[in-house]
Design a protein around this nucleic acid. Structure first.
Lengths: 180, 180
DNA sequence: AGGTACATGTAATTGGTTACATGATTCC
DNA sequence: GGAATCATGTAACCAATTACATGTACCT
């Protein structure tokens, strides 16, 4: 099984769920298309990590409600403590930034202004998710709560995107300096 | 052509280079294996974006020195100003963090202690690269200098990894709180 | 009339990693 | 003797995106 598979198992420890809902729940942390999730769930079922039962619906396609098995839980618990791979973070902006000197300050400014806005939107998005988290209890979830993972990840994304937004502004200030 | 291809073109605007050296130069910003780079360069040559000439070597395999063509430079300049795709940043640690509550505070602490060290190493690595940058001139490169891209990217990585290191420490502090 | 959400699936293609393959040189 | 660096390449596989496919309900 792959990393995405373990991500799905992690969500299923919090309760049975359809493939569609798993896709939505994965979105903030590890975006994957349904075309990747549905076949993976089927494969995971073949290998005994999950089982599903049909929930008939009228006027909508039937749902497949997946549940994690003991085998699945064991596999997840064995995988979790292993030191994670460090993955290459690939972002087109990196490649464009590398060659920014080629396109002149105006086009460069457009690129970074645009990016700054993208990061601003993402920060708003993650802030909203954090606010939802705080709706119930005002206290941050304890490390033994199932919500702890989402909580610390939201904080992580907030920080990463905030830094990148500031980085865009810093680059813009360098570009402006030259214009003077 | 794909994003990696444009990255290679960007490096080639700074001078002709072998596939092997391109791989090394790409490493800090967009890690790719030689098995991805060599066939891509061949394809890019077929499409007229680069040309190569053989540099015979004794006791070592001959080098293929690639040079960007006018077509290649035009394609790069047309691509650069387009707003970049926002790519999903996939890192196994994200999936593990999501399910951290399942493995208990000791194993969780091990995971984050390990990760903190990984980020610390990366910061040291990027700091060294930044120092090398500053060796020649003490002034940061101007936006019209070919080094400007590398310079701002190194700063970006420094910031991103610094934040993630601090995030690890913050999570560790939460885990410790519970232990008390 | 067109877009979004719900709900699932397959097929084609691209992107990326791992492994196989060769061969000299240098460092520990 | 074994690992690392230089230097290229192919083959097999896995991961991920895009497109094709179906069908209802609701909103504008």
């Amino acid at each position: 099984m792959n990393t995405l598979g373990f991500g799905l198992l992690g969500l299923l420890t919090q309760g049975p769920c359809s493939g569609y809902d798993l896709m939505l729940k994965m979105e903030p942390i590890w975006k994957a298309q349904h075309s990747q999730i549905y076949p993976l769930l089927a494969k995971m079922e073949q290998e005994g990590f999950v089982v599903h039962e049909l929930q008939p619906q009228t006027e909508k396609p039937d749902k497949k409600i997946y549940t994690i098995t003991d085998t699945g839980r064991e596999a997840l618990l064995a995988w979790l403590p292993e030191p994670p791979d460090e993955r290459a973070g690939r972002d087109e902006m990196i490649i464009k930034a590398q060659s920014i000197w080629l396109i002149g300050p105006e086009a460069g400014r457009a690129l970074f202004t645009n990016r700054e806005a993208v990061y601003r939107d993402r920060i708003r998005y993650y802030q909203e998710l954090l606010d939802k988290h705080h709706q119930g209890g005002v206290q941050p979830p304890s490390p033994s709560s199932p919500d702890f993972g989402s909580y610390i990840l939201l904080k992580r994304y907030m920080g990463v995107f905030t830094w990148q937004m500031e980085w865009c502004r810093w680059v813009l200030s360098l570009l402006d300096e030259q214009a003077e």
